[in-house]
């Protein structure tokens, strides 16, 4: 699993041969947002550039954009989040995934942090 400074994660599925990945927000982000009450997931087929806002996560207090950690095409959205948005708080780095993306350029992953680097980054905040 790789991480961004904006607190998104990307997890390449082994069975895809490194071409597909789940993306979501980190436990740190979910905790900071508080109770998630609404999630706007991207439409399947949407083509994302790294850094694009591709989803919105809303707490009682505010709406927060989620930025694409990598470029690619949305091949699946987590529809569970429309009926159970609180899944993001419960399991942000697993069942609370937001979308599955077909990677446009797997080398973008090299620019992201691994778990240890992300945790070191969190310690500076």
């Amino acid at each position: 699993m790789k991480f961004t400074k904006d607190h998104e994660w990307v997890n390449v599925t082994p069975e895809s041969g490194g071409n597909e990945a789940f993306v979501g927000i980190t436990a740190y982000a979910a905790e900071a947002l508080g109770d998630v009450v609404f999630v706007e997931v991207p439409e399947v087929g949407k083509v994302l550039k790294k850094g694009d806002s591709f989803a919105v996560v809303e707490s009682v207090k505010a709406a927060s954009d989620v930025y694409a950690p990598v470029s690619g095409e949305v091949i699946e959205a987590n529809d569970l989040l429309s009926s159970a948005p609180e899944t993001i708080n419960a399991v942000p780095e697993a069942g609370g995934w937001i979308a599955k993306i077909k990677l446009a350029d797997a080398s973008e992953l090299d620019g992201l942090m691994d778990r240890a680097a992300y945790e070191a980054y969190l310690a500076t905040l």
Binding site: G34, D35, V37, V60
Partner: peptide
Amino acid sequence: PVKYEGVLAEH
């Protein structure tokens, strides 16, 4: 303080 335990629970 914007929240302690969480906005939903506090509300």
